[in-house]
């Protein structure tokens, strides 16, 4: 299992998509390719944009299918962040 803490990289407002892409490419995808579980930790983050979440997780659905949700968990998300994650997950599953 790999535990990724976002706040040290993003600050309290997660909006920088370049950072999201780096985390996805260099931490999340390599872990999933090794069939490890991934915990994405939003502790100390009070808001995120849809663009950030999209850049962070949308490609996981393309690469690993909807089953990727069995391997990825989202920790310490406030209500707003949960809603944005659900929007992105909804439309990524609807697209197929």
């Amino acid at each position: 299992m790999i535990h990724i803490k976002l706040a040290p990289k993003t600050g309290s407002f997660a909006e920088n998509k370049d950072i999201a892409r780096d985390i996805r490419l260099h931490e999340i995808i390599p872990a999933l390719e090794k069939e490890r579980e991934v915990i994405i930790d939003f502790e100390h983050i009070d808001a995120a944009t849809q663009s950030f979440i999209h850049a962070l997780i949308s490609d996981l659905f393309r690469k690993f299918g909807d089953e990727v949700l069995d391997q990825v968990s989202f920790k310490s998300c406030n209500e707003t962040i949960q809603k944005i994650i659900m929007i992105v997950i909804d439309y990524m599953q609807e697209r197929t």
Partner: peptide, 23 residues
């Protein structure tokens, strides 16, 4: 929602979803 200049595919690309202006 869901329309981006970067692709005509639903769900957008890895970097763009076409959601920003709708939000």
């Amino acid at each position: 929602p869901g329309i981006t200049g970067t692709t005509d595919k639903e769900g957008g690309t890895e970097f763009n979803a076409g959601a920003g202006l709708f939000f």
